[in-house]
Design a protein around this nucleic acid. Structure first.
Lengths: 115, 115
DNA sequence: ACAACATACATCATCTGTCAAGGTATATTA
DNA sequence: TAATATACCTTGACAGATGATGTATGTTGT
């Protein structure tokens, strides 16, 4: 993965993160491991991608963050999805439903009608 | 379309163009009208996107271009897909098959396993 | 004891594809 | 003769992805 198909996932980053948060609060490292596990190791976010997505999502009020109170180990920044975020997530998935059908058509070879 | 779902199509531009050329030589304006027609008017490329994609594809030897010999009307630059281009098209669609299944999983809300 | 690795976060500079805005030119229709 | 359709092209700006780099703690293997 990584290099060649990377562009295909572009545009889904925020949806994937929001989907994870729809199931409950989580934090960066954990979300990324979940993604990796769900794809049988085939995909995970680059760290810079992940953290800059968090920043955008928080700026747009789709998520809020807070520090966890771990007694041991590295500190964790947890994220919660907001109502606006849930709304946004539904809009994104709806839209993806429509667009994916469109793409499915367009990437097929059309009926040849020579010039 | 245009603004909000535009990011989702990013990464498919070249595949869509190659798909059109798999059916026979064509030119920019015609390809774009075909895309518009296939999507019931919901989508078409911005011109700058289209022509910069042609440029990239030609630089990478996936397509070749030649001027048509129209006796009337505006001139047309036709494109032919190369063997390398056909190969590339198949790779892109294969990859898309895999990645789309992956995305389908990832954008769903996972089994909640609270922390 | 010490290295390697896993956990966990963050920022900056750069790259790439998209797109708004501008341009050129011909032909047809109102 | 103005508007619209056909047809192509370039430039600059922008946004998301990413390589590189940095910080800090905890665990495991030798």
């Amino acid at each position: 993965m990584s290099n060649i198909a990377a562009d295909l996932i572009r545009g889904h980053t925020e949806t994937i993160i929001l989907a994870q948060l729809m199931a409950g609060d989580s934090y960066g490292y954990r979300i990324n491991k979940a993604v990796k596990q769900m794809t049988d190791g085939k995909y995970e976010f680059k760290e810079a991608t992940l953290y800059s997505a968090f920043k955008r999502l928080e700026e747009e009020r789709y998520i809020q963050s807070y520090w966890g109170n771990e007694e041991s180990g590295a500190r964790r920044r947890y994220y919660t999805i907001s109502d606006l975020g849930r709304q946004h997530y539904r809009q994104l998935t709806d839209e993806w439903g429509q667009v994916s059908r469109m793409i499915e058509m367009l990437v097929q070879i059309p009926q040849s009608e020579q010039i």
